[in-house]
């Protein structure tokens, strides 16, 4: 059985594998403009415009390191198979080093996770969830649009979670695409995988295992499928998500958690 295809997504997509492209360093773009003279002229007039508008050449910028970083989880969570480029995907090999960097960087004090995902690979999704849950810095998640399937553990992995009023989360059983061997063990394996998702969600949110399983195996809510689609306040009523809100509330909460975290750290030093 191919373990790479444990798809937990509300859409059904397939992909092919291809090698990782090496990244290369892009040089400074300022003087080497290939546009030649015209490009040079544009640059000059842009500079003049700035001087005329602001009386200076430097446009005010955000401070070099913002203390809150933002992780966006969009499209499909990509696992061991690379999806065709027209798919919008979140790749764990991109996210995990970023989370490590956030943990290590002294200047970063908090992390905002924004989700609008259809779900995807179980193991990749759980990997991201575990990374977020074990991050020592305050984390707040915000579900916008949709946080379906494996997006659910990612949303609840954060210290505090928000959901937009119109956002939805689909909770349904794990399914398998690709080659499946028709033996009872396959079912047991799938059941075990499902338990990993259920355990993670119940450990990191206020929903009970019974409630979550009930939502997961409910009939008649989704067309051609078992499961439930919870919208905005329903998710917070079940205790899955902490609060209904938007980016303003999420950042306010994150700043509160950062202050609390600071006080705690100072207490240890004294």
């Amino acid at each position: 059985m191919n373990m790479n295809n444990n798809n937990y997504a509300s859409g059904n997509q397939r992909g092919q594998h291809y090698g990782e492209n090496p990244s290369f360093q892009q040089g400074n773009n300022a003087p080497g403009n290939p546009g030649g003279q015209e490009g040079h002229k544009d640059e000059k007039s842009g500079l003049l415009e700035k001087i005329q508008q602001l009386g200076q050449t430097n446009v005010p910028q955000l401070s070099q390191d913002s203390k809150i970083h933002c992780l966006t989880i969009v499209g499909q969570i990509e696992g061991h198979l690379q999806l065709p480029p027209q798919n919008k995907t979140t790749k764990y090999e991109h996210l995990i080093p970023q989370i490590v960097a956030i943990e290590q960087n002294q200047n970063i004090e908090g992390l905002l996770v924004i989700l609008n995902t259809v779900g995807g690979d179980v193991e990749a999704g759980l990997a991201i969830s575990e990374m977020l849950a074990s991050l020592s810095k305050p984390t707040v998640s915000l579900v916008l649009g949709g946080g379906h399937s494996i997006g659910v553990p990612i949303a609840v992995a954060c210290d505090y979670s928000f959901i937009a009023e119109t956002a939805t989360m689909t909770i349904h059983p794990v399914r398998l695409t690709g080659l499946v061997i028709g033996v009872p063990q396959t079912f047991e394996y799938l059941d075990k995988m499902q338990d990993r998702v259920i355990n993670f969600v119940t450990r990191n949110s206020n929903i009970s295992e019974e409630d979550f399983k009930e939502l997961m195996f409910a009939k008649g809510n989704l067309t051609r499928d078992i499961g439930t689609n919870v919208v905005g306040s329903e998710a917070s009523d079940f205790g899955l998500i902490d609060e209904v809100g938007g980016v303003g509330q999420a950042l306010k909460k994150l700043n509160e958690l950062i202050e609390l975290n600071k006080d705690k750290n100072e207490g240890i030093i004294q």
């Binding site: 397939r14 990244s23 892009q26």
Partner: peptide, 29 residues
């Protein structure tokens, strides 16, 4: 499924790559 009937041309995959622009990681095509 449609994506099995019409499989993606392997060449399409090499269109996108990760680039570092002045230290900022960007996905470019």
């Amino acid at each position: 499924p449609q994506e099995l009937v019409y499989q993606t041309d392997p060449q399409e995959y090499s269109q996108q790559l990760m680039v570092s622009y002045n230290g900022i990681p960007v996905l470019a095509e």
